[in-house]
Design a protein around this nucleic acid. Structure first.
Lengths: 221, 221
DNA sequence: TATACCAGTATGGTATCCCAATCGGGGGCT
DNA sequence: AGCCCCCGATTGGGATACCATACTGGTATA
């Protein structure tokens, strides 16, 4: 394992909410903290900008704020991508690959850390997308999941919710293996919409508490 | 009209094939040509990299080569986006907006330059996507169209092909105004698939000639 | 003649400067 | 007391010098 690049470290700091959404960043200010000079820091910020994790405004750089409207829009877009993904996978993926992906769904559930839990969830969806054979679809979904990543820290993860995720993933996997595209689409939509509803509800509810802890949340009327 | 930024000029040079696909670029080498120093040139290259117009390999920067496989994959992805776009537009766009978009389809056809012709085509599709109300969908489609842009120079644009485009766009517009999502999906799919088939055929056919003129084309078996 | 080595050159990566613009605060004037 | 102006600090944008690396071409030696 090679040590993480500056871009990866900054990215991690943002995704872990170590750098709060909405927080101002200055190129010079980050120098001491990350032990690098402005040039590579600027390069990292530019990459993060293209990933949507950081923005420029008139004054300078800010960590992209959480915005309920935007999250809803991304979630809708995610549905488009994932539905297309499962349909394509249904018709083209090899049975062996489908089985392997299904294995991911029924994978290790005992005592995972929140990070691992989140990682598992996204990697299942990403691996699934790869089976579509369309690299651009995968890349787009990766970008979407990155943009949604921070919201998952704010979701309450109960044993029941994890169990539900598990069940839904398995249902999807079964439909895929059966090559039933309609059933697969239904399963993924149900899965995503349930998750989205719970997420937005939980975010809207916790809004004040989060704002108090330095996490600014915009939009959502 | 403010003068174009360095990023826009470099971008234009790539999209117009002024910088050939596959061509090596060096940061210092671009300095004299664009009258800027390495720092902004680097910044522009990094942005172009995120747009897929430029790549880094072990040696340095290259203009992203045209790759038949990749073009096919992007075209497929484009179908996903556009289909989702018209379905969403069907159910949400205001009738006024739909009418306005339809107006674009039946817009000025007399004596357009190739640039204008290409620009019209993409702007119709982009404007249409905006009606979906999903900004991420629009952004993704924009990226896709950018990546496909260079191939359009290589298509033969006959009066018949333009007429066909026109007819297909109008058919799509009618379906949208009638709020007939299935018909709209069919229309857009037919439109895209016809275009894609003609494009890939024309590209594969002209491969040698293009290679001889400095345009390298990869992939496609 | 063929091969090995070495120097020159070109590359991107990094560290610093300088610059113009902008925002805030403090002091002075009314 | 209140308002205005000016100066200083901070910002990102740009220019440039330096670095390590890797390729290239030529030369000298076996």
């Amino acid at each position: 394992m090679t040590e993480p690049t500056l871009h990866e470290r900054l990215r991690q700091a943002i995704l872990s909410l170590d750098l709060a959404p909405g927080q101002r960043l200055s190129e010079r200010g980050l120098e001491p903290e990350f032990g690098a000079s402005r040039t590579p820091i600027r390069a990292a910020l530019m990459r993060l900008e293209s990933e949507g994790l950081v923005r420029r405004d008139a004054k300078g750089w800010i960590v992209t704020p959480l915005d309920l409207d935007e999250i809803a829009t991304i979630s809708e877009f995610r549905e488009v991508l994932e539905v297309a993904g499962v349909r394509l996978s249904c018709e083209r993926a090899s049975s062996a690959d489908l089985e392997a992906a299904a294995e991911l769904a029924r994978a290790p559930r005992p005592r995972e850390t929140p990070e691992e839990s989140i990682g598992m969830g996204t990697s299942f969806h990403l691996e699934l997308a790869k089976l579509s054979g369309n690299l651009f679809l995968v890349t787009a979904l990766d970008g979407v999941l990155t943009r949604l990543y921070r919201t998952r820290w704010l979701e309450v993860t109960t044993p029941e919710s994890r169990a539900r995720t598990h069940v839904e993933h398995e249902k999807l996997a079964r439909a895929l293996i059966a090559r039933d595209a309609d059933a697969a689409e239904l399963a993924i939509l149900e899965h995503l919409r349930g998750g989205r509803a719970r997420l937005l509800e939980s975010l809207a509810g916790e809004r004040q508490r989060l704002r108090a802890s330095g996490v600014s949340i915009e939009g959502g009327m």
